[in-house]
Amino acid sequence: MSRNLVGFASASQNKPGKRVLPGFALSLGISLLFIGLILLLPLTGLIMQTSGMSLAEYWAVITDERVVSSYKVTLWAAAIASLFNGVVGLLLAWVLVRYEFWGKPLVDALMDLPFALPTAVAGITLAALFSEGGWYGQFLTALGIKVAFTPLGIVVAMSFTSLPFVVRTVQPVLEDLAPEDEEAAVSMGAGDWTVFRRILFPALWPALMSGVALSFTRSLGEFGAVIFIAGNMPYVSEITSLMIFVRLQEYDYAAASAIASVVLMASLVLLLAINLWQARYLRRLHGR
């Protein structure tokens, strides 16, 4: 998803005109068939299931106390995780772009590990690391910090799985940044921190925001990594995705669908907002 940043900039350069190239009908047919069957048709099941409920029933299910606690835990954990990733991701992107050091290609390649590693594997690994006797857990326990089986564990899992987003959205922008403004400011005697705050940060800000938003969206939906480390205690460390799962295991399909419709709506709104945001600042970036 981070690729839209770089991707659609040149769209406007394509001249509309006569269709010289073959395959329009074929590729349109296959694409529409696929999108219809794979992406849109399954939505009808959810719509039919929830439309069978009365508004009062629907409202009761999605505002159930346990479900509302799960929204709160999920939102808070995702917010903290994506802010953490904003700071750490900016630092990592900065170091990878601006400095040369031994082992840099390896570090750069490793950045994508959380995307490549299956979430269940990430989940059991983090649970093992942060459990009381684990490699990290033993030190944290000595400090009186408990991570495994607490909401903090959820934050850890979400941070891990969405770490690459900020790095990979900020990195290309930082690479392409024109050096003139920075050079001018430095040669006029501005301090490093001032130059960063007043010149570089404003230029990086849109990409950073996109990365944080993508990280937040991903964290809201994260399931595999979280359930192993969260402890999944109702009202305390139960995420909304798990709530859907629990309702399904109770064979309460209607309740599962109602909660899922809330999650789906939230993620679609976020997706749209991110796309609009990226389109807007791409225009600003290339419109000059």
Partner: peptide, 25 residues
């Protein structure tokens, strides 16, 4: 179309599974 194709990235995997279960279950 370009926006639609991003849907699977934004949707929680559990919700994705549920969509299929509701339709084809």
């Amino acid at each position: 179309l370009i926006t639609l194709i991003d849907i699977p990235f934004a949707v929680s995997p559990v919700v994705a599974g549920l969509l299929y279960l509701l339709l084809y279950g």
